[in-house]
Design a protein around this nucleic acid. Structure first.
Lengths: 159, 159
DNA sequence: TATGCAACTGCAACCAGTTGCAGGAGACAT
DNA sequence: ATGTCTCCTGCAACTGGTTGCAGTTGCATA
């Protein structure tokens, strides 16, 4: 719980208030070891405080995202998940658009890309938690008569 | 309109039907030179056929996305746009999370990344139309006392 | 051309997420 | 400890997008 005080300080320093609701949401995120949806956080929170409103959860998540304390990832079909940002634990996800399997991707690939983009365009990309869609090895075998082409997708970003 | 027949064929070959509604949506997308939202397509369509339902537009776009005839991109804050896929015209977007400026990114950066990922993980990523969020050169100057850290985002993909 | 099946449409109900507002609570200064 | 200002919360209304359903239509076959 010592990191809780740190978070409270970050909130105050940026002109935000450390309310009990926010601390509960922060607690849920910090103690979850993976991704949580807004609905899951809401359900957890209602157990000890039934008067919460889902809009409070969304608004708090937006603030935390802005402060870069949590990351937001769209893991496929409309499930936006949130995760506590633990520094030095950068990871990415490869999500198969056929079977929905999720595998991890080492950060080094994106690191190179980020450095390259920054060097040549002066644009500093946020590439620390990407979800990349495609076809996994297993599903590619069933598709092997398909020729090369592609549709696409774009992130849900931090504006 | 010769490419229309080609599209009709693609639809039929994959067990889909070429309905007038779908052809109108295809027409809107093909004649637009940029990105269109579902709502914009819907509005255009209602002019000549007022009985359309927005759900038809969404369902059609989902089919076309599946068939890789259109690409879907989330250009920042909740504006999902659709674009007719013109082969050999791959492009990406760098979107500043501070000022929302959009610049283009050459495909070569992503191409390298895709090849690398495929070689080492056997996962074939869909990297042909990405939206990457971050800070543009101008906005970075105002942020230059900030240290390195980052939140993130993830694509809305083709499942 | 007639027939039959499966896919598609429009409708309506629904769900997730957002927004405006009035009251309530945090935090800073005194 | 008290006051005041501003931010935050919960509520309710709303919007964008999705889903189930029953009737319709495309299209393959004969």
């Amino acid at each position: 719980m010592s990191c809780e005080k740190e978070t409270v300080q970050v909130l105050r320093e940026t002109g935000h208030k450390a309310t009990p609701q926010r601390l509960m949401i922060l607690g849920s995120l910090r103690h979850a070891d993976g991704h949580l949806t807004a609905g899951e956080i809401f359900d957890q929170m209602r157990v000890e405080y039934p008067y919460v409103d889902i809009s409070t959860v969304y608004r708090t998540l937006a603030v935390l995202k802005d402060l870069r304390l949590v990351s937001e990832t769209d893991m496929g079909t409309g499930d936006t998940t949130y995760e506590w940002v633990r520094e030095h634990r950068l990871h990415h996800h490869l999500i198969c658009r056929n079977c929905d399997a999720v595998t991890s991707l080492d950060h080094k690939y994106l690191e190179d890309l980020g450095a390259e983009i920054m060097a040549e365009t002066s644009f500093k990309p946020d590439l620390d938690h990407f979800a990349i869609f495609g076809l996994c090895a297993t599903c590619r075998e069933s598709y092997d008569n398909d020729s090369d082409n592609g549709s696409s997708n774009g992130p849900g970003g931090a504006a």
